[in-house]
Design a protein around this nucleic acid. Structure first.
Lengths: 208, 208
DNA sequence: TCATCCAGTTAACAACTGTTCTCCGGAATT
DNA sequence: AATTCCGGAGAACAGTTGTTAACTGGATGA
């Protein structure tokens, strides 16, 4: 299925990825709106003008980073919401998944949390779209559940947004606790678990 | 009780406030980490070096903005959570209050949402502290409620954090809908109301 | 009244920014 | 084999940045 790229295109994608990686690293200590084009090229080790061969602007680069950070996450979210089992098990699994994802891609998570309300409009818009897609996907998965019987479509979407926002809050908490001792990370796990549990209880009694 | 300031100190506070106002206006389209010192002084109409008479750095200015944006909000939160009445009434009143606050101080709200996970560590820390104070205050108010009987202290704090985060999410939604037509604002109100309602239901059945 | 204080000014510094235009050399195409 | 393509380099542009030092002049306090 995979198409073998020419030497040229392969090399281009390689340096493009180098731009994304370097930018992500630089963004650990600043926001996108203060990220300089020359700063990135310096980190990559290329001439400033090379930047324009890949992106129109740093805002454009930011949008590409949004796709990299969230684009590949959709199947993961779908399967997590729809996995079978006790609701308590599902909560535990979801939070473990978030925790592991933060461990594996901390810079990606930080970038999304930072730029979701950040100073660059096109990037905010791109994140908003991706999160709306998540909510929509969670909605369709929730709708399949027998639990959703009697729910209006709107209410399912409302709940889906609540879950997505809670997912982000939890990820951000794990991020802050990344270099903290184990018991702090455990505290976050407990907090997030109980919050998700409370939401689930609210869900179970919604139709009362 | 109020001490009359000398001409000198009064003038100083006046230009200091001008710095805060100008910065807040400039921050509508960028993040604090890209806000330049000269940019602010230019907007105020004063020499660049005058900045140092009031702040060590733009990060320092940011921390002052956090106090301005959140410092005076504590009594409001306390009374809102503890107001008597039907829980449905309380939800409606809380969301109205958020909506009006966003209308009255959109730049403040935008600043907090943007810099909560922003690129300037001292500012993040200042916001984190203020939000922790909010959560603590909500906790003590919730603990007074007869509803909280049988709840562990930890669980009340967990719920308080959930409320505070939900407050911020709602504020941010109203902010995005600020210049949108009335029906979009109404949609946000409906969404936030039902989310808060679901959380309240979860709260009512927590001890089952 | 006179000396002190201090918010704001002026001038200058080296270092940095985004962007344009021109060029190079190896890959791709014919 | 000859030609086109194109990712990257180089140099130069006018503007911008944070920070320093030494200053001015009106408010302050003795």
């Amino acid at each position: 299925m995979s198409h073998t790229l020419g030497i040229r295109q392969a090399q281009k994608q390689k340096t493009r990825q180098a731009f994304l990686d370097a930018a992500l690293a630089l963004l650990e200590e600043q926001s996108l709106s203060s990220l300089g084009l020359r700063e990135v090229t310096r980190a990559v080790g290329v001439a400033p003008t090379a930047f324009y061969r890949h992106f129109r602007s740093t805002a454009d680069l930011g949008v590409a980073l949004v796709d990299e950070a969230l684009g590949s996450l959709h199947p993961m979210v779908r399967t997590t919401v729809s996995t079978t089992g006790d609701s308590e098990e599902r909560i535990t699994r979801a939070i473990e998944l978030i925790s592991h994802h933060v461990d594996a891609y901390p810079a990606h998570v930080r970038f999304i949390a930072r730029e979701r309300h950040g100073g660059v409009q096109p990037v905010r818009e791109a994140i908003r779209e991706q999160l709306a897609r998540f909510a929509q996907e969670v909605q369709t998965e929730l709708a399949k559940d027998p639990e959703a019987e009697g729910w209006s479509e709107d209410d399912v979407l409302m709940l889906a947004h609540l879950y997505v926002d809670q997912m982000l809050i939890t990820a951000s908490l794990f991020l802050e606790a990344l270099e903290a001792p184990e018991d702090e990370r455990e505290r976050v796990t407990q907090l997030a678990t109980r919050q998700l549990r409370l939401i689930t209880i609210g869900r179970n009694h919604w139709l009362d």
